[in-house]
């Protein structure tokens, strides 16, 4: 498990964001910020992912998609809401089609604020996510040993 603790794989899904946070998530993996040099890879497969980055609020059509992606990810997993929209609904909170932040459908562990969230804060969120991931992995192991 130690490789995962240092180099978690990310899965990014755009809930209903304006694209601003999405390109900042991608910018984290490209030169200048470049988290890929630490082995943090942006994967497309939920079954390979350790950390789920969700941007944008939840609407009635993507609700099922977000839930499905979350369920397909193996345990332990960490969910990070990136940007104000994913945290609370943000500027679109009053729109008729927005139910609210990502936590209305899945449990969110870490909230990264900002409109758009800066790559530095996204990376900070992921680093905090790694610490949480270790705790979750230890708890999972303890419960397996108890059984």
């Amino acid at each position: 498990m130690s490789t995962i603790h240092k180099s978690p794989w990310l899965l990014h899904y755009d809930g209903s964001s304006c694209n601003g946070c999405d390109i900042e998530v991608l910018a984290c993996t490209t030169p200048v910020y470049d988290v890929e040099r630490f082995g943090v890879i942006n994967t497309g497969n939920p079954m390979h992912a350790d950390i789920f980055l969700i941007t944008g609020g939840i609407n009635s059509q993507n609700e099922a998609v977000v839930k499905q992606i979350y369920e397909q990810m193996p345990q332990p997993k960490v969910v990070i809401a990136v940007g104000t929209c994913a945290c609370t609904g943000g500027i679109f909170k009053e729109c008729y089609n927005i139910k609210g932040g990502a936590d209305t459908v899945i449990p969110v562990d870490i909230y990264v604020p900002g409109c758009a969230a800066r790559p530095e804060s996204i990376i900070d969120g992921v680093v905090k996510g790694i610490a949480l991931f270790k705790e979750k992995a230890a708890a999972l192991k303890a419960s397996e040993n108890a059984n």
């Binding site: 609407n59 998609v65 927005i98």
Partner: peptide
Amino acid sequence: GFIHRGLESLTSKKDFNEMVYVAER
């Protein structure tokens, strides 16, 4: 429709100056 927010309807809640920032988003 996966990202539909209903942004245009915000005109009834935000005034025309605030809508600049909605339009940017």
